[in-house]
Structure formats: structure tokens, C-alpha cells
Amino acid sequence: MANVCEICGKGERSGFNVSHSNLKTKRTWKPNIQRVKAVVNGEIKRINTCTRCLRSGKVQRAI
């Protein structure tokens, strides 16, 4: 599954773990992507969307 939201475009971010001694190692943060049935342009489709878009009502879930 792609780690990108089809609604807002939120995707994987990269950065560093920083230890107490200030050593840095690369790491990534992944969004909470859910595959849901949603109403898109009047028809039911499966889309990948982040939980922020689901919670805020940007996605109308199909029943």
C-alpha cells in the first residue's frame, strides 16, 4: 500500500533520531493511512486516506 493520502497528499517524512549525546541517525515518520470505501463523485471507490482526513470529514465513507 502506498504511504500517501489521496485526499491531502500527506506522505512519509524523514528526519533524525537525536540521542542525548547528540548523535544523529536517519529515520522516517509514516502517516496513518487507511484503505476505506468512500463516495467519490457519486460512486463508491476504495481510496487510501489518512485518519486526519477521515476524522475531519473530508471523506464521506460508504456504508
Rank of each mutant, 00 (worst) to 15 (best):
N3C: 07
N48D: 08
R13K: 14
E6H: 06
K37A: 06
N22L: 15
S14R: 10
V4Q: 12
R13V: 08
T51V: 11
N22P: 06
Q34L: 08
C5W: 01
I63P: 15
V4N: 05
V36W: 04
L23Y: 14
H20E: 11
R13Y: 12
K24V: 13
E43F: 06
E6S: 13
G9Y: 05
G15C: 00
G15K: 06
K24E: 15
N41E: 12
N41L: 08
K10M: 06
N17Q: 05
Q34C: 11
N48S: 09
R52A: 11
K10V: 05
C5V: 02
F16P: 07
V18M: 11
I7T: 12
N22M: 15
R61M: 13
N32L: 10
S56C: 06
K10A: 01
K26A: 14
R55F: 09
E6W: 07
E12T: 00
L23R: 13
G11E: 01
F16W: 15
C8R: 14
C5D: 04
K58G: 03
R55K: 15
K45F: 09
N48F: 07
R46Y: 15
S56P: 05
R55G: 14
G9D: 02
N22T: 12
R61V: 07
E12V: 00
I63L: 13
N48K: 10
I33G: 00
K30Q: 04
K37L: 12
S19N: 06
Q34H: 13
R55I: 08
P31M: 00
K37E: 11
T25H: 09
I44T: 08
V39F: 05
I7V: 15
V4R: 09
R52D: 12
N41D: 14
L54H: 06
C53M: 09
N48M: 05
W29M: 08
V36G: 10
S56Q: 09
G11D: 00
V40N: 04
H20M: 09
Q34F: 07
G11C: 00
K26E: 15
V40H: 08
K45S: 09
S14M: 07
N17P: 03
I47W: 00
Q60S: 12
K30T: 03
A38D: 03
T49P: 06
A38Q: 02
K37I: 02
K26M: 11
T51P: 06
V4K: 14
A38C: 02
C5I: 02
V18R: 11
L23I: 07
R55W: 08
A2L: 10
